[in-house]
Amino acid sequence: MESNYVDLDEETLFIVSQTFKALGDPTRIRILHLLAEKECAVGEIVEALALGQSNVSHQLRFLKNLRLVKSRRVGTAMYYSPEDEHVMELLEKTIQHAKHD
């Protein structure tokens, strides 16, 4: 029986591992879960999740570098929203799995 298996290239492996690393942090999960509900400014995230502003900014930078969130400027405020619906679907399915009895 001949196998048609093709191994993953290094770039794909790196992106996948970084995505799971992002989803492996409780703070980033909370931020993504909030952003799945609505676009938020940094201050809104800080208030909604009771986190420090520097922590939120650091996590958003990490998520933005992985292209998991995107931002847009309105005046002096930056608003964040999900950029990758595939990852958001994965997060939602994982949350549903965790809540499943």
Rank of each mutant, 00 (worst) to 15 (best):
Glu92Cys: 06
Arg72Leu: 05
Leu90Val: 15
Thr12Lys: 08
Gly24Val: 06
Arg67His: 14
Leu91Gly: 08
Glu85Val: 11
Leu91Pro: 00
Leu8Phe: 01
Glu47Gly: 02
Arg28Met: 09
Leu35Ile: 10
Glu10Arg: 14
Thr94Trp: 03
Ser54Gln: 12
Met78Lys: 13
Thr27His: 02
Ile29Cys: 04
Gln59Lys: 15
Pro82Lys: 06
Asp9Asn: 12
Arg67Ile: 10
Leu32Asn: 09
Arg61Gln: 12
Val87Gln: 08
Phe20Gly: 02
Thr76Met: 08
Glu89Asn: 14
Leu35Thr: 09
Leu13Ser: 00
Ile15Phe: 02
Tyr80Lys: 10
Gly52Asn: 11
Thr27Lys: 05
Gln18Tyr: 01
His33Asp: 15
Leu51Tyr: 01
Leu60Cys: 06
Ala22Phe: 03
Glu2Leu: 08
Val69Leu: 03
Glu92Gln: 15
Ser81Ala: 15
Gln96Phe: 04
Asp9Ala: 06
Leu23Lys: 04
Ala22Ile: 09
Glu89Phe: 05
Asp9Thr: 03
Glu10Cys: 03
Phe14Met: 05
Thr94Val: 06
Thr94Cys: 01
Lys93Pro: 00
Arg61Tyr: 07
Leu91Asn: 12
Ala50Thr: 13
Val87His: 09
Pro26Thr: 11
Ser81Val: 08
Thr19Asn: 04
Val46Gly: 11
Glu44Val: 04
Glu85Asn: 03
Val74Gly: 01
Leu8Val: 05
His58Asn: 14
Leu34Val: 11
Ala41Cys: 04
Ser57Cys: 01
Tyr80Asn: 10
Asp84Lys: 13
Met1Lys: 05
Lys21Glu: 13
Leu34Thr: 13
Cys40His: 07
Lys93Glu: 14
Gly43Tyr: 00
Val56Lys: 09
Gln96Val: 07
Thr94His: 09
Ser17Asp: 12
Gly43Pro: 01
Thr12His: 06
Arg67Pro: 00
Glu89Ser: 15
Glu89Trp: 04
Leu63His: 07
Glu44Asn: 10
Leu32Gln: 11
Ile95Cys: 04
Met88Ile: 15
Ser57Asn: 10
Met78Thr: 12
Glu85Gln: 07
Ala48Ser: 14
Tyr5Thr: 11
Leu32Cys: 13
Glu85His: 01
Gln18Arg: 13
Val87Thr: 14
Ser17Trp: 04
Val56Asp: 14
Ile45Cys: 10
Lys70Thr: 07
Leu60Thr: 12
Glu85Cys: 00
Pro26Glu: 15
Val46Tyr: 01
Tyr80Phe: 14
Thr94Pro: 00
Cys40Leu: 06
Leu66Ala: 10
Leu91Ala: 07
Met78Ile: 09
Glu2Tyr: 03
Glu83Thr: 02
Val6Leu: 13
Leu13Ile: 09
Ser71Gln: 13
His100Trp: 12
Ser57Trp: 06
Leu8Trp: 02
Asn65Pro: 00
Arg67Lys: 11
Leu51Met: 15
Leu13Cys: 08
Thr94Met: 14
Thr19Pro: 00
Asp9Lys: 03
Lys64Asn: 13
Asp7Val: 04
Val69Gln: 07
Pro82Tyr: 06
Leu68Trp: 08
Ala41Leu: 03
Ser57Ile: 10
Gln53Met: 07
Glu92Arg: 11
